[in-house]
Amino acid sequence: MKKVMLSIAVVAMIGMTSCKNQTEEKQENTEVTEELKEIAMAETTFGVRGNCGMCKKTIEKAAANVDGVIKADWSIDLKKINVAYDDSKTDEMTIHKAIAASGYDTDQVAGSKEAYKELPNCCQYDHEMEMSLTEPIEGQGSNHHEVE
Rank of each mutant, 00 (worst) to 15 (best):
V11A: 15
C52M: 03
N143F: 09
T45V: 15
T94K: 12
A40D: 03
D91R: 06
N51D: 02
N65K: 02
M129I: 11
E128H: 11
E24L: 15
I39W: 00
E43W: 01
V10D: 06
E34C: 00
Q27F: 12
M54F: 08
H96N: 04
A100Q: 04
C122W: 03
G47Q: 04
A64N: 07
T17Y: 14
E146N: 11
H144T: 12
V109D: 09
D67T: 10
E60A: 01
A40G: 00
I14W: 13
D126M: 10
T94P: 04
N21M: 15
G53F: 02
D86F: 03
I70P: 00
H96C: 05
S75R: 01
A101P: 04
T58R: 14
E43F: 00
S18E: 13
A84I: 06
C19S: 11
K113A: 14
T106N: 06
D77W: 05
V11S: 12
D87P: 02
G141N: 10
E135K: 14
E34L: 11
I81F: 04
E34W: 02
A84E: 14
E34F: 03
K37V: 02
Q22Y: 14
M129Y: 09
A63G: 02
E38C: 00
E31Y: 09
N51C: 06
E114T: 13
D107S: 11
K80T: 08
A9H: 05
A115H: 09
I14D: 07
R49F: 02
K57H: 11
H127F: 12
T45M: 06
Y125T: 06
C122H: 06
N29Q: 15
K79C: 10
H145I: 15
K79Q: 15
T106K: 05
V48M: 02
D126N: 15
L133S: 01
K57V: 09
M41K: 03
K117A: 15
N21A: 14
T23R: 14
P120L: 08
S18C: 11
